[in-house]
């Protein structure tokens, strides 16, 4: 690691924001599971590390009836996996979290880190997309809530400014009967990045939402396809139809993890299976 940095661990948001304002080339550290690797590989360099783990607000992790689920920037992925309320109310989030990396990595990795890293193949963003999650950002100008679909700009790029911090993510509340699923294909059964990841949700009004990772520079919400699906309405033929149809809405690339052809193929398979799960649940 060529970076030479000092280390600052503020106890309040104000201290953190002040520090960011006054110190260029600062990197925010929560779990560090991406940051430390980038620093080690000298893929990035920085002069300051701002460890936000001592800020009380970022540990917020609660579900409130009528408001929804709030996951603070300090909440690690295993906390999400272990949450019974998430498994019950937001099953896709539980599944995506449980599929993310290895057990020990999940003890450090955070959901907020997973979105700030803005990897096209991140497991959690598609789930946040189908739940219309809001990203809670704070900066010198104050707080704001940004819809997750507006958060990503490109590979490793988000709208977040250098002097801003993501405090947490809010998933709006779900009604009784809401269901979701996350399916992922990887290269082995052990921990791996998603070759493709698909999140699908069916709300209590039987509206389908679909989002997909690793087929574009950013995680995609397939809004046009959703519209067509929701116009057609749910049927037993729908999953098979979507398997073919989804290919019109994505244009993945070939890279070291997968060929474009397989990404297209597996997107269809996963979307089909996801919808099968959601529709079968209804029948039973």
């Amino acid at each position: 690691m060529l970076s030479k940095f000092d280390y600052y661990k503020p106890k309040s948001i104000k201290e953190a924001l002040d520090y960011l304002d006054n110190n260029d080339e600062t990197r925010i550290l929560a779990g560090g599971t991406d940051l430390m690797i980038l620093l080690r590989r000298n893929a990035i360099t920085c002069k300051h590390i701002l460890d936000i783990k001592a800020i009380p607000e970022i540990q917020r992790f609660d579900y409130k009836n009528g408001e929804g689920l709030y996951i603070g920037a300090g909440v690690n992925v295993n906390q999400i996996v272990d949450s019974e309320i998430i498994e019950e109310k937001y099953p896709a989030l539980h599944q995506a979290a449980a599929s993310l990396a290895s057990y020990q990595l999940r003890n450090r990795a955070t959901l907020v880190g997973n979105i700030c890293n803005a990897s096209p193949g991140g497991d959690l963003p598609p789930v946040l997309l189908v739940y219309d999650a809001e990203v809670h950002i704070i900066g010198p100008e104050g707080e704001k809530m940004v819809n997750i679909k507006d958060f990503f700009l490109g590979v490793k790029k988000t709208i977040l400014k250098d002097n801003e911090i993501v405090l947490g993510v809010l998933l709006p509340d779900v009604e009784e009967g809401d269901n979701s699923v996350y399916l992922k294909q990887s290269r082995l059964k052990g921990h791996d990045l998603a070759t493709v990841g698909v999140a699908a949700r069916r709300n209590n009004e039987n509206k389908i939402s679909l989002a997909i990772a690793a087929v574009a520079p950013i995680p995609l919400k397939l809004t046009e396809l959703e519209d067509v699906i929701n116009e057609k309405g749910l049927s037993n033929d729908l999953p098979d139809w979507v398997e073919g149809e989804i290919k019109k809405y994505i244009s993945p690339i070939s890279d070291v993890r997968s060929s474009k052809e397989y990404r297209i193929h597996i997107s269809g398979v996963l979307a089909k299976r996801a919808l099968q799960t959601l529709i079968e649940k209804e029948v039973n």
Partner: peptide
């Protein structure tokens, strides 16, 4: 809890 000590400061 288990952690990978190589990527923790």
């Amino acid at each position: 809890e288990t952690v990978n000590s190589c990527i923790i400061l």
